[in-house]
Write a protein that binds this DNA or RNA. Structure first.
Length: 215
DNA sequence: ACCCAGGGTCATA
DNA sequence: TATGACCATGGG
């Protein structure tokens, strides 16, 4: 089964997922930073705190004292580091001229600029470029590695750039496709395949094709 | 009590 | 290039 066929299977069983769960592009950026190595349920609490404090805004986040911002995002973990990353992002974002200025850049330049910001690695950058700027880049995460190495299509320990190049080569360059595909991968990993001892609830059983955990 | 979650940076070899 | 330490909460 090829990369596109796997997408079609997932899409048929679970889609459409209508990602990213956020009201605005800026909220996507905040969520992408806060969810680094962190369960999304914890990020939701942090974002709720920011919204309740009327602080889901780049100017306000920049102006907030470290301790105050850290307290708001505390449920998302690593709150001291993420406070620095959030403020670094918002400072850069405003200094650059905001969404409209960045959206003028071609995709490779946009990705490079985003990636240059402190606290933004390849996955967070691609989350932002894909889900906030609607550009066709394929997001690679731990689930992608587990699922596709389990399927025998990759080794799993390739570099991030090697894997994103592979996926982008194997699939048509299409923002909606990349958006939905990554959403389906995360959905699959989170809601179906962490069961022990086998994934009997998986519609793709009996082979539990998309098993992602350990038995 | 232990394991892990929609990673990234920095120091070291 | 490639490991390892570090960051920290909340749910299973």
């Amino acid at each position: 089964m090829g990369f596109y066929a796997i997408y079609e299977q997932l899409r048929q069983h679970f889609g459409p997922k209508d990602w990213w769960p956020a009201d605005t592009a800026f909220e996507v950026m905040v969520g992408a930073i806060l969810t680094q190595n962190t369960a999304w349920t914890n990020v939701e609490k942090a974002i709720r705190n920011l919204r309740s404090a009327d602080s889901l805004d780049p100017q306000i986040i920049c102006a907030l004292p470290h301790e105050k911002l850290a307290r708001l995002i505390r449920p998302s973990g690593y709150y001291n580091i993420k406070t620095r990353r959030l403020q670094a992002w918002c400072n850069w974002y405003l200094e650059y001229g905001g969404y409209e200025a960045l959206d003028k850049l071609p995709t490779p330049e946009l990705r490079a600029e985003v990636l240059s910001v402190y606290g933004i690695g390849p996955e967070t950058a691609d989350d932002i470029v894909l889900y906030a700027f609607n550009r066709p880049v394929f997001v690679i995460d731990a689930y992608t590695r587990r699922i596709f190495s389990r399927l025998g299509l990759i080794a799993g320990d390739e570099s991030y750039d090697d894997l994103s190049a592979l996926f982008e080569q194997e699939l048509p360059t299409n923002t909606a496709l990349f958006n939905e595909y990554h959403a389906l991968i995360v959905n699959q990993a989170k809601h179906i395949c962490q069961k022990k001892p086998r994934c009997e609830q998986c519609p793709l059983a009996p082979d539990c094709l998309f098993f992602t955990g350990r038995h």
